[in-house]
């Protein structure tokens, strides 16, 4: 869609896009280009010698079992975050959609966790799950289950998944609720008249009609788990114990800033960029069907 009426000026449009473009070039394209270039080089941490080695960094990377382990951790983490995040918020949204009086109050009480920083959410749950002084940790131990996220990899995974899901529920909830409210009431009423109970109506009408929202949220949640959970991992577990919660974005940071393995870190950046581009294309494929530009 284009405007029929436009203004004419030789220089004004360039001046108007200049600030945006300047920042985009300096802070997006230069670094991305540098990451791609760096991923083809081998450099020592002090930058004294540099050698062009082609795709060797990538070959080393994919032969590195730590990197492959990090892929596995990321996959498990994002499946858990997306699965639990979507399931819990769908349940809450379905029930909130039923409420006639007080729906607004429930909505307000369920959306505020979106405002809590990921790192702060991680610290709150770290405190609750702290093996010596955490309240929840105490309850878990009371059930006779061993609990120590600092030593046990599975416990640490539970900690970061809970923090991430808690942080993301409000977002999913809002979109599910909007999706539910846009389903025509006449369909539901027709089914009710035909004798379908609430469970049957949900599975045969509501859930299928909600599938575009569900698919969209699935992609958003996977992107969230892949890229935006850095703060949760860093503040709660630091990728540990061992490598148990070291997701890909955390490994890029750790290898680049702590181990100063620049070539490998850059190659990992390039792999991640490829993943983001894939996910974004997927997301826009969905949007194309719904929104006209």
């Amino acid at each position: 869609m284009e405007k029929r009426v436009v203004f004419r000026s030789r220089w004004l449009p360039y001046l108007l896009v200049a600030p945006q473009l300047a920042i985009t070039i300096v802070f997006f394209f230069l670094p991305a280009g540098q990451a791609i270039w760096q991923s083809l080089l081998q450099e020592d941490p002090f930058g004294t010698s540099t050698e062009f080695i082609g795709l060797e960094n990538f070959a080393t990377l994919f032969a590195d079992e730590h990197y492959l382990a990090s892929f596995r951790v990321t996959a498990i983490f994002s499946v858990l975050v997306a699965g639990f995040g979507l399931a819990i918020s769908l349940v809450l949204a379905v029930f909130a959609d039923r409420v006639v009086r007080g729906a607004g109050v429930y909505k307000t009480l369920l959306i505020w966790p979106y405002a809590v920083a990921h790192a702060v959410a991680a610290v709150l749950w770290l405190f609750l799950f702290n093996p010596t002084l955490g309240v929840v940790a105490h309850w878990i131990k009371g059930l006779g289950i061993g609990w120590d996220p600092l030593l046990d990899g599975n416990d640490a995974m539970v900690l970061v998944v809970v923090a991430a899901v808690w942080n993301q529920i409000s977002y999913n909830f809002l979109f599910f609720l909007a999706g539910l409210q846009s389903i025509p009431k006449s369909l539901i009423e027709a089914a009710a008249i035909d004798g379908a109970g609430p469970g049957r109506r949900f599975w045969t009408i509501v859930f299928p009609l909600l599938s575009p929202t569900t698919f969209f949220l699935l992609v958003v949640n996977i992107v969230f788990a892949f890229f935006n959970t850095f703060a949760i991992i860093d503040a709660a577990t630091g990728g540990g114990p061992g490598q148990a919660t070291e997701i890909l974005v955390y490994k890029v940071y750790k290898d680049g800033f702590k181990a100063l393995d620049l070539g490998s870190s850059a190659a990992q950046s390039v792999v991640l960029m490829a993943i983001v581009i894939g996910l974004t294309v997927l997301q826009f494929k969905w949007i194309e069907r719904k929104v006209q530009y």
Binding site: V17, Q20, L21, T24, I25, V26, F27, F28, F29, L30, P31, A32, Q34, A35, Q38, F227, N228, F230, V249, V252, Y253, G256, F257, L262, S265, A266, S269, L272, M273, V276, I277, T280
Partner: peptide
């Protein structure tokens, strides 16, 4: 071209280009 340049930045979250961006800053 400018429009697409801006569009592409959607695909480059700070997490994935952290080291080179740090270097530039």
């Amino acid at each position: 071209f400018f429009f697409w340049m801006i569009f592409v930045t959607l695909m480059l979250p700070v997490e994935v280009r952290i080291l080179p961006t740090y270097k530039i800053v």
